[in-house]
Design a protein around this nucleic acid. Structure first.
Lengths: 200, 200
DNA sequence: ATACTAGTTGACCGGCCAGTCAAATGCAAG
DNA sequence: CTTGCATTTGACTGGCCGGTCAACTAGTAT
């Protein structure tokens, strides 16, 4: 099997936009199979369960971001605090373009899934947590660099990073409630005002 | 029917913790009926649809908060910025007590439902939006008062209020991803550092 | 007593849910 | 040519989904 079976890929490709635009519980395996032109039994040959599929979808989204906007935003050539602006802008433009195509603001799939499933499935929660954890590390490293560069005054980089991530997710949530990406545009830049001071 | 039928109330009482701790799609009417000791047909006598039930549940949660913690927090006797601290504390203690009883952090039901259903049901989205809108107004009035009192320097009260609400929701989201209310405790106080300056 | 209505009952609808299975297919290595 | 494995097929399971319905009960108002 030198040629990586495209069946698996087609399943994931069919599942991605559905989980993103609806919800975990609202998307059925049957529908995914029909859309991917795959039989039920074939699906279960590649994925032991629905949960395994959504984990693969999460990975794909994470990779897509990591190699796309995130890589661009956290470009070491950029002054540290500008990287944060860049990331917020990227979130804005991405949501905006999705809305133009799809008619709706879909928000962040990691946030969406977290609120839906994390009380019901600890394995999925752990997966999502790991994603947030990596995002936080990016913010943290950037903040530390900014402190060293003297761009911002010293602060608790770990907690401030977490606060910024929380803010970004919250802004996207509110934007989704208004079905309007412009909320991200208006509220996003305030992310840089967030600060947690270092403990005494 | 002088005695307000308790059937309706029992249905809502059975639905509340379920929608809060799981999700809209994951809770069935059958289960709610069984738990409330009510027949299916009786359910549909009081609620035209599942959506109407969840709207009633949203209203109950909103009232509970409005007459509980929110009323306490936005007490005019408190210095304005302390009201915001109070509200964040209330969110923390509430989530913490839920976790002690239930074993899990359930988060904010408005945020949970927003991310789950707002791409699929504009009526529910509008309902949730109205809740957020009221919350934002509370923040805004408080900020305006703080500016007048000279506690904080002048800012864009409308956008800062929205930013604070976003931050609170984001912090709760992150806390839920870690199943740990202490996240709210650690990150919450930074809400007061958020600022959107007035436009030129 | 009668008529009306709010409330209740429980069976029923078509359809979808996640997941299983035994049998068939196709391909590759010996 | 044969063995063996990856892949695919499509029917099938038991159970739940939201919602409907006609019949029944009970209380109230005239």
């Amino acid at each position: 099997m030198h040629i990586a079976t495209d069946t698996r890929s087609r399943i994931i490709a069919a599942a991605k936009p559905r989980f993103h635009s609806r919800s975990y519980a609202n998307v059925g395996i049957q529908e995914i199979c029909e859309s991917a032109g795959v039989q039920k039994g074939s699906f279960y040959h590649f994925f032991p369960s629905k949960r395994d599929l959504v984990m693969a979808v999460i990975d794909e989204f994470a990779d897509e971001w990591a190699h796309g906007f995130v890589a661009e935003a956290f470009d070491p050539a950029l002054p540290p605090m500008e990287r944060i602006d860049y990331l917020v802008d990227a979130a804005y433009f991405w949501q905006k373009s999705i809305k133009q195509v799809h008619g709706r603001m879909l928000g962040c799939i990691f946030g969406n899934l977290t609120l839906e499933v994390s009380t019901q499935d600890d394995i999925l929660r752990a997966k999502l947590l790991a994603i947030f954890s990596r995002a936080k590390s990016r913010f943290k490293a950037t903040l530390e660099e900014a402190v060293v560069a003297g761009t911002i005054s010293p602060l608790d980089a770990d907690l401030t990073a977490e606060a910024m991530l929380a803010y970004l997710e919250g802004v996207i949530l509110l934007a989704k409630s208004q079905n309007d990406p412009e909320v991200i545009y208006r509220l996003g830049p305030a992310i840089k005002t967030l600060r947690v001071e270092t403990a005494a």
